[in-house]
Simulated assay, not measured.
Amino acid sequence: MSSVNQVYPVIWQSDASGNAPDRVLLIDQTRLPNEYAFVEISRCDDMARAIKTMIVRGAPAIGVAAAYGMYLGARELDETERDRFLAGLEGVAETLRQTRPTAVNLFWATERMLKVARQTLGSVDYLKQALLETAKQINADDIQTCQAIGGHGLSVLPTSPEKLRLLTHCNAGALATAGYGTALGVVRSAWQAERLERLYADETRPRLQGAKLTAWECVQEGIPVTVITDSMAAHCMKQGMIDAVVVGADRIAANGDAANKIGTYSVALIAKAHNVPFFVAAPLSTIDFSIADGSQIPIEERDPEEVCQVGDTILCPPGVDYYNPAFDVTPASLITAIVTEFGAFVPSQIQTELQSRKIV
């Protein structure tokens, strides 16, 4: 396997020769860690399929991919009359929205692209170009956002010990964003500041994002990483092996309740029981102020095969039933702070604080 230093999971590629259409390159995360390969996407339906099948995953990365998907869908529309074009674009947005219901960045990105189209004056061709430029800006902004999250997260990590041992669940790294990462961005910042001793990565059943993706990213950069099974977190905390937990989020309610990969709630409960600080790192676009609390967050349920099968190996006997929610919701009361690009906030005060600063 070739070594990769800088990871960008969503890349816009223009063909100057004109021999092929401009397209999006996605790192195929379903092939990692065994194969580092890209998938070329030049149609909106293919982008929707890539999001649905988790070729691209992680709320911020899904948002970036959806933004490009909006442009690709716009490019496919033959309408030259403005109102008809905008109606067609609404249909494109709906196709993308149907892919992953929990990741709010998907809805944020499609709405931003629709808003640009509605507010841009000029020909339909000019609107299409404005959509492409907006998608590129969303991509670039996300990298800067994650770097800011990393810095703010570093500032609120425990000051003792000098070298920290952190635990994360799922993948909230460069692969889950446009680059750098949210939770793993905090880890990267700690590593660069020489404050990280080791990262412990839950394997994250049933899709194994921690074992496959988080561990892979750390290996690329030489960050010390130890993979543990999800059921080992309590033992590790009891043994004093974990100084803090840092996870990402796919949607955060106005009161600070946070939805993240299934199993995160369990880690938060364990952290509370062992007085280990528990941080959620996510951009402002992940906060859904339209919902009051986590009970209103839609939870995606996925194919039972993810539970009963790993690769070609069947784990369970025929005839059993399966339950496979992809996410759970961690109550705000279990979260030490939510780290955004604008700083770290006590969950219950995040809406008030952001409003007082005129950020939202």
Rank of each mutant, 00 (worst) to 15 (best):
V92F: 00
A93Y: 11
R118P: 05
E81N: 06
I62T: 01
E90C: 05
K52G: 15
Q144S: 14
E90Q: 15
E111V: 05
L26C: 02
A140S: 12
A140R: 15
R31K: 15
L72K: 14
F85Q: 00
C44V: 03
T80E: 14
A48P: 10
Q137K: 14
T80P: 01
P60K: 15
A65H: 14
R112Y: 00
Q98A: 13
G18T: 01
D45P: 00
M54H: 03
K52F: 12
I143K: 15
Q29E: 07
I62K: 06
V104E: 12
I27Q: 05
I138C: 00
M47G: 12
E81V: 14
G122M: 11
Y68W: 08
R43L: 13
E94R: 11
V24K: 07
A37W: 08
V124R: 06
K52V: 09
L86M: 09
Y126E: 12
E133W: 10
Y68S: 00
G122E: 14
S17M: 04
G58L: 08
Q119K: 14
D83T: 10
K136A: 02
T110W: 05
E90D: 15
T102G: 13
A20T: 15
R57V: 13
C146F: 14
N34Q: 12
L127M: 14
V39G: 07
I27H: 05
R112L: 02
L106H: 07
S42R: 09
L77P: 05
E133K: 15
T99R: 03
T30L: 13
A109K: 07
E76V: 07
A20H: 10
A93R: 06
E90K: 15
A48D: 13
G63E: 11
G63F: 09
I138E: 03
D22A: 00
A16L: 11
V56N: 09
N34Y: 13
R118I: 04
A140Y: 10
E81P: 04
P101V: 04
R84K: 14
Q119S: 15
T95Y: 08
D46K: 02
E40M: 02
L106P: 11
R31N: 10
Q129M: 13
A59L: 10
R57F: 05
R82Q: 12
A74C: 08
A48Y: 14
K115R: 05
L26S: 13
A74D: 13
T145K: 08
K115C: 04
D46E: 14
